[in-house]
Amino acid sequence: MKIAVVEYQSSVQVGIVEESQVFLLPQDISSSIEAIIHKGDRFVENILERKSTYESVSLSQVRLKAPLQNPEKIIGIGLNYKDHCREQNVPVPEYPLVFAKFSSSIIGNGDAICWNTELTRQVDFEVELGVIIGKKARNVSTQEALEYVFGYTIINDVSARDLQFRDRQWVRAKSLDTFCPMGPWIVTADEIPDPQALHLSTELNGVKMQNSSTAEMVFSVAELISFLSQAFTLQPGDIIATGTPDGVGVFRKPPVFLQNGDSLRMEIEKIGVLENTCKIIR
């Protein structure tokens, strides 16, 4: 199932996306995907069973918004692709490198990534598989970890590289407003039984910049969930941004940073396409 948050006729609703159609859930069923996740698997099954009773509109008639608006945690993972380590000429990490992004950085498909050049002039792109936790997870084993996944989405872990290297930690550089594009929807875990076999790519103004596979991950989705859950409780609706492959702008020769008016197109197999433009606000 593809589940999205859409704006239709000035109303924001949850919808089930099937090909070019969206089945709109009535507000009295649920007003957010977060609420659906918290209500559990049986509630999701009931939604699907009642789908034929919902209003159906064309996908072209709605505006897609970020599928999650205010998760408790957005957990980022650094250096989690072997090819990304190779492009930097650094060893693969022995343990996952964990950082945080603030939920105030979230925007949706079609929204503009914005920044102030007085703050940063080195804005970079990172296509990432986003993992949405479906139920409370603490001290989870690797073998059972995927049972805790609600679904998957695309995340652009936008990064202000000058701030990142100057601060010598990553939170500020990766949490500026609009620096977490997400979407276009969530694909439930049953449609992606193996998250380690997905092609992912980035195009900047129509030019392919990143082109890899989640098979390149140093730590798998299951390993990340298990590792994180040993340290702190993962809650329903939490997001794990699982790292990016090679091809980011900062390590190109010469470096390529985002500019005003740029267009980004990120695609992950079995999920879809996330598109955003870039806008310098000062």
Rank of each mutant, 00 (worst) to 15 (best):
K2Y: 15
I3A: 01
V6M: 05
S10E: 05
V14E: 00
G15Q: 00
Q21P: 00
D28M: 03
S31M: 12
S32H: 07
S32Q: 11
V44D: 10
V44N: 13
L48D: 07
E49G: 10
R50E: 06
E55A: 04
L64T: 04
L64P: 00
L64D: 03
P71R: 05
P71H: 06
G78A: 10
N80T: 09
Q88W: 14
V90H: 13
P91F: 15
Y95E: 02
P96T: 05
V98A: 10
S105M: 02
S105V: 02
S105I: 02
G110H: 08
D111E: 15
D111R: 15
T117I: 08
V123L: 02
F125W: 14
E128S: 12
L129E: 01
R138P: 03
T142F: 06
E144D: 15
E144K: 15
L146W: 01
I154M: 07
I155G: 05
A160W: 01
R161Y: 12
L163P: 00
L163S: 03
Q164Y: 07
D167L: 10
A173K: 00
K174I: 01
S175P: 09
S175L: 13
P181G: 09
H199A: 12
S201L: 13
N205I: 07
M209N: 06
Q210H: 11
S213V: 09
S213M: 09
A215R: 06
A215V: 10
F219G: 06
V221Y: 02
A222M: 09
I225N: 03
G243L: 05
P245G: 10
D246H: 15
G249D: 09
F251H: 11
R252I: 11
P254T: 04
N260E: 01
G261E: 09
D262N: 00
E267N: 14
E267I: 15
I268R: 07
E269C: 07
V273A: 01
L274A: 03
I281N: 04
